[in-house]
């Protein structure tokens, strides 16, 4: 992707809270305009650190962060002009109403009060505007945080784990709001450790592992990765005999006396192996292709153990 077309560009980012600690290592990331960028990683992989560095809350040791071509480190104000952010649990003044929480940001940014009603409607919180934030449920707090981020009508929304701790209804509500915002042309940068969540809405995915990007591309490109290998479970009368047939030429795992799982480089190998098994007198009961789904791929990509 041409960097000039990206709304967020991160290059060679290094960050640690001290010299010996390396939370982000040579991190590169590009968010195209009008996309929903799903930023995936296991807990502790460096997602929140990356987001805080993008927003200028953390100062990187090395590397560049640009938003609309403006370097955040040196032009923080102009870089953040079109950004709305919700970082983990929203920063709400719990003793104040939802309306007053929004009024505070309106004051800071010099926005008209009429925006408050508009954003409350967008997140479906009009009915709770006068209620104190401490009386809100977790989902309502999250939606209020989203409303605060939307007040300035930003072109980019950066959301750090926005569905964390929400019940299924809350997750669906937030997902629908994000989809709606995307339809209005907003670019959304969304972090999560839940692949299924990202899979449902993201147009582009980045996967971080131990502070380094291990994958970046479209959801289709991610799916192509998974289809390069094929896992097959074979039900036979004796797994040990199958082992002799394979003779170390393929990866396999004996599940029990009658089941064995094969990992094949391509599907052309499957009929050859089956023919060999039949020729060696093995009784074959069933051949079940295993779904190498994104969840598995995600675990493979982010796990510390060799796959």
């Amino acid at each position: 992707m041409n960097p000039s077309t990206s709304v967020i560009t991160v290059r060679g980012l290094h960050f640690g809270y001290n010299k010996n600690q390396k939370i982000l290592k040579q991190l590169n990331l590009e968010v195209p305009p009008s996309s929903i960028y799903g930023f995936l990683g296991a807990n502790g992989a460096g997602k929140s650190t990356t987001i805080r560095t993008i927003l200028g809350l953390l100062k990187p040791q090395l590397g560049q962060v640009q938003i609309f071509g403006e370097e955040v480190r040196f032009n923080r104000l102009s870089a953040l002009k079109n950004v709305g952010a919700l970082i983990e649990a929203p920063s709400l003044y719990r003793h104040l109403s939802g309306y007053d929480n929004l009024r505070i940001t309106c004051q800071y940014l010099g926005l008209p009060k009429s925006r408050i009603g508009e954003v409350l409607e967008m997140v479906n919180l009009q009915h709770a505007a006068t209620k104190r934030a401490k009386q809100y449920s977790t989902g309502m707090k999250q939606r209020l945080g989203l409303a605060v981020a939307l007040l300035s009508d930003p072109e980019i929304l950066i959301l750090d784990e926005p569905v964390n701790g929400l019940d299924p209804t809350g997750i669906i509500e937030i997902r629908n709001i994000i989809k709606g915002l995307h339809q209005r042309g907003k670019t959304i940068f969304l972090s999560s450790h839940i692949l299924s969540e990202i899979e449902k809405i993201a147009t582009r995915v980045g996967i971080i592992k131990e502070g380094t990007m291990v994958f970046q591309g479209t959801v289709n490109e991610l799916q192509q990765l998974k289809s390069s290998s094929l896992n097959v479970k074979v039900l036979v009368n004796d797994s040990q005999k199958v082992e002799n047939v394979l003779n170390g030429s393929h990866k396999y795992q004996i599940l029990d006396k009658n089941q064995i799982e094969l990992t094949l480089e391509d599907q052309e190998q499957l009929p050859i192996i089956i023919r060999n098994m039949v020729n060696k007198g093995i009784d074959l009961y069933e051949v079940i292709p295993q779904r190498n789904d994104l969840e598995k791929l995600f675990i493979n990509l982010t796990s510390n153990e060799p796959s």
Binding site: G56, L57, V83, A85, I87, R94, Y108
Partner: peptide
Amino acid sequence: HRAESAKYLYSLPLR
């Protein structure tokens, strides 16, 4: 401090 407002306020385009 209770609202952990720094992470939000300092991500606004203000000094």
